[in-house]
Structures are given as C-alpha cells and as structure tokens.
Nucleic acid binder design. Structure first.
Length: 480
RNA sequence: GGGCCGUUGGCUCAAUCGGCAGAGCAGGGGACUCUUAAUCCCAAGAUUAUAGGUUCGAUUCCUAUACGGCCCA
C-alpha cells in the first residue's frame, strides 16, 4: 500500500498517458528479454568498461539527476553497478517533449550512441527512451541524502538509493559473509542448516521467542543458538560443519543487540579450544585482508591490527588487575560487586568482565579461563575442574565471538542441564553415542561487520532492524 | 525498566526574549541546444509528531502520549 504524500504529484501521474497496467506489461516483457536475450543483460558498469565512441548501447536505470536546457537535456541514470550520463536532444529524440517531463526517480530504459562530452564524460546520446516505472512518491536528492535515522531504518530502500555509502556498507557485509563461507569451505567444512524452531531453548543464556505449531499442537521457540544440533551432526560423523544464520533472543535492544541477529557457528572434530583460537583469528584476519585488503583497521578512532597471533588474557587475573582486588572465583566476584555498590545484577562475574575488563581490550584478545560453572556446554580443564576450556574473542572492547572445547561426557552434560533447570534429553542421548573431541566456535556476524565497516550501532549493519510500528504502519496494517 | 536529547512542507535545515512559520532542493508552469548540486523567472506546497495546559498570543514554556537516538540498567 502506497501512502501518497504529495497530492499534486498523484494528480499529475493520473494525467500521464502511460497507465500503470502498460508499465507492468512493458516491464514484464523486459524481464522476459532479460532471460532469453543474453545481450540485453548489460549493466552500466559493463557499458562503461566496454565504452567506445560511436557504439550503440541500451541500458536501464533510475534517473538520479536531470538538467534540461531548452532543446537538450543532460541527466544521470544509475543501476546497482554504476552511473552514466545521458543526453537527449530535440532533433534526435522523437518523444523529446515526454523526455523533458522525466522526474528524478523515474526508472527508464535508454538507447543511443556512446560519445564523450567536451569534459570527456562518457555519455549516451539518446535515440530512444521509455519509462519502465513511474514512481508516485518523489525520491530525495542524493546531494542532500537522508539523515533522519528513523527514516533511514524504516525505509531502508530510500537510504540505499540515496546514500551511496550505505549501499557500499551492505555490499561489504555480503562480501564478508561470502568470504567466510569460502574460507570454511576451503578448509573442508560443510555448510548445513539446522532447525530454527526448537522445543527447548538451549545453547546460550537468553530468553527465547515463543511460538506454536498448530497441527502438532506443539509449543516451540525460535532458536537462541544452533549449537546443539550442530554437535549432533559431529556425532553423526560430519567432522567439520558450520552454519550461518539467524538467531533470536527476546531481550533488550541496544547498539550491540538486535532481537534477530546472524551468527556463524563452526564445529571441528578432533580439535580443542586452542585449535579454535587459531581458526577464529585466521578467519577474521583473512576476511579483513580480503574485503578491506588490510588487517589493520580503524574503528571508532582506534587502529586495530587483526593479524594473528592474538593476545591471550586469563579472565580472573584481568578482573583483579582492573578492580585492584583479589578475585579468584565467583564468590569473589559477588563480593567485589557488593563492595563497589553494584546492585540488582544477575551475574557478578559477567558484570565485572563487561564493565571493567572488556572495554579496555581494543586489540584482538582471547579472554580465557572462564569459570566452568558458567559454561555448561564446555569441557573442563583437566588440571582445574573449576575452569572451562573456553574463550571469548574481544575486539574494540566488544565481544565478537565465543568458543570452547565441547563437553562430550553425557553424564556431566546431564548434570549441567539439571543445574540449569532445563534438560535436553535428546542432546544427552546424542552425546551418549559418542562425540569426538570437538572444538566449537561462534562469531557474531553483525558485530564483525560493525567492526569491519566502522559502525558503532548494530542497526547500521542490519538492513531492516526491528523497530516499533509507527503511525503510518499501524494505520495500514491492522485489519481488525 | 531509568536518565538525557530529538520530532517544523516529499528531503535537508532556519525561526532572536513567548510576537505574522522561512529558505534551499525536490515536485508544477515558463525561458534556455555540452550540462553535471546547471542557471533564471513564476506559482503552489505546513493542523510545527499527537492530546491537553499556561498565556492577549505557543514551533518556543508546562504535562502526558507516540516514535526515534544516545547513555545507563
């Protein structure tokens, strides 16, 4: 449903000779040609690359600037690959009058001879043009862009159209993800898809979104992590698996949290958390090298070098150093929180780490030696049963990833589940068939993209971040 | 959940101490045959987020609500 803001515009459109129906037909024919005639597929970048004066070319794009002067007019059209100048002249273009009626945002097809203007700009001298789609609402001008953050998020299509750097940022996101895939594929990892609807929310400490399957009359929740299913695949002999996909946590929204976010989880059999340190630093530095052609990045005024090896930091000594108190275990954490007058917190350990340790870790750091009690799916260290073989990846003061040697003992897993108060017997059963020593890694893709695109809000790297419906949406959507 | 800030035409922004809501761009009409943020002329476009309150008078001050941003939890 379109909201017509500009009444005059709407009336003007109504007077146009081309009906919407015809536009649709035109467009459909074009799509058909697109499929069957290979040479009609040309995009602007291709045209610019193969540019030679005198050649005749046909391209399609959106009109982003228009400068008529009487008997001629210049403009620019752009598609996803680039932009090119077009030039129409009254004696060359039979429908020149209609040409002069073009407005910014019109989606047109143009055909003509290529030439260079006197400033040597590559230009198409139009012999014909046609309107493929006539927008009913105006498109803001690129020069001014869209700055209103709410508008940028609600109408991302306008943000993408008008703000070039936004388009580039999301292209970069896409490259980062495809690069991660390629790197893992090359190492023999198999990409898999596991259920997003779970009967028990497991794999992380988070509130799930609840839903229901009607035919089975079954209560389900959206996954808060893919972890357990992926480990079942390791039991099943798929020794190297990974999944990149959405995960859902029914929690607050912040510059670091969106209720649905993208996670990469990778599991490697016959490996432990040390191997995962190697894998994760290699992955992240390789992605940076490939996408930014540099392992040194600038993030929020810090220069960060992602090249391995990364620093390792034991978490309890790090807390001690930060709060200048003796902190050896979880009781100490609770005591320190009390002493510092930090109240109403669920997890004193996490609070101290988040507040006092993490913010100071700008360069990539493996934060190691997490308490076993807070790591119910991780293997305990052989020399210290209170400590898990687990680490978090901290870069620019932000938790980017989490990994451990996977717990493979079904009895111990069952005990851990019971202590948490929710038991996934299905998973315990899977473990009872034998999980090889396995290293597991989770990386928050959105945060990684933030890091590599120098964005301080997660909403700037998610195309459509969750927003409360505003009046416009509520008025249109609610059917009751 | 708490604190602070914001919301003015389609977009980007003004509006002095509480005193006639204004500009640029976009959109409409006109002039202009190598422009590129084209230029020039004309006309139009606003329930200042919403609902109240104070006041002779509110974009401006107060209260509540909605949405957003940042910070904290």
């Amino acid at each position: 449903m379109t909201i017509y803001r500009d009444r005059r515009k709407r009336e003007f459109i109504a007077k146009l000779s081309i009906s919407n129906y015809q536009l649709t037909i035109n467009h459909y024919l074009l799509q058909t040609q697109f499929i069957y005639q290979h040479n009609s597929k040309m995009q602007i970048k291709e045209l610019l690359n193969g540019f030679s004066e005198g050649k005749v070319a046909k391209v399609r794009g959106r009109l982003i600037s228009f400068r008529p002067h009487g008997g001629s007019a210049f403009g620019h059209i752009k598609d996803s690959t680039g932009r090119i100048q077009i030039y129409g002249k009254v004696d060359k273009l039979s429908n020149f009058a209609e040409f002069l009626h073009l407005t910014l945002g019109d989606i047109i097809e143009v055909e003509g001879e290529l030439f260079l203007t006197k400033t040597s700009e590559k230009t198409i001298f139009l012999s014909s043009f046609s309107i493929l789609t006539k927008p009913q609402n105006p498109i803001p001008k690129e020069w001014y862009g869209i700055k209103d953050v709410e508008l940028k998020h609600r109408k991302r299509y306008l943000d993408l159209l008008v703000n070039e750097e936004v388009k580039e940022r999301f292209e970069k996101r896409s490259k980062i993800i495809s690069c991660l895939r390629r790197l893992l594929d090359e190492k023999g990892f198999l990409e898999v898809e596991t259920p997003m609807m779970h009967t028990i929310a497991q794999g992380a400490e988070a509130e799930p979104f609840l839903t229901h399957h009607n035919a089975l009359d079954l209560s389900l929740c959206l996954r808060i992590a893919p972890e357990l299913y992926l480990k079942k695949l390791i039991v099943g002999g798929l020794d190297r698996v990974y999944e990149i996909g959405k995960t859902f946590r029914n929690e607050g929204i912040s510059t670091l949290h969106n209720p649905e976010f993208t996670i990469l989880e990778a599991y490697l059999a016959y490996a432990n958390y040390n191997d995962m340190m190697e894998l994760s630093s290699w992955l992240i530095s390789s992605v940076a090298k490939e996408v930014l052609s540099e392992t040194k990045i600038i993030y929020d005024s810090n220069t960060i070098d992602l090249a391995p090896p990364w620093k390792k930091l034991s978490v309890f000594p790090a807390i001690e150093e930060a709060v200048k108190e003796e902190v050896k275990d979880l009781e100490d954490c609770a005591r320190v929180c009390e002493k510092l007058n930090i109240k109403e917190i669920e997890d004193p350990f996490k609070t101290l780490v988040d507040r006092f340790v993490q913010p100071n870790l700008i360069q990539p750091t493996f934060l190691v030696d997490f308490p076993a009690q807070l790591s119910p799916l991780a293997k305990k260290r052989a020399d210290d049963p209170n400590i898990a073989e687990r680490f978090e990846i901290i870069i620019a003061g932000c938790e980017i990833g989490n990994a451990y040697s996977e717990l493979s003992d079904p009895d111990e897993q069952l005990e851990n589940f019971k202590r948490q108060g929710k038991v996934d017997y299905d998973f315990v059963s899977a473990l009872s068939y034998g999980l090889p020593p396995t290293g597991g890694l989770g990386i928050g893709i959105d945060r990684l993209v933030m890091l590599l695109t120098n964005q301080t809000s997660i909403r700037e790297v998610i195309l459509f971040p969750l927003l409360k419906p505003n009046e416009e949406v509520r008025n249109v959507v609610i059917p009751k």
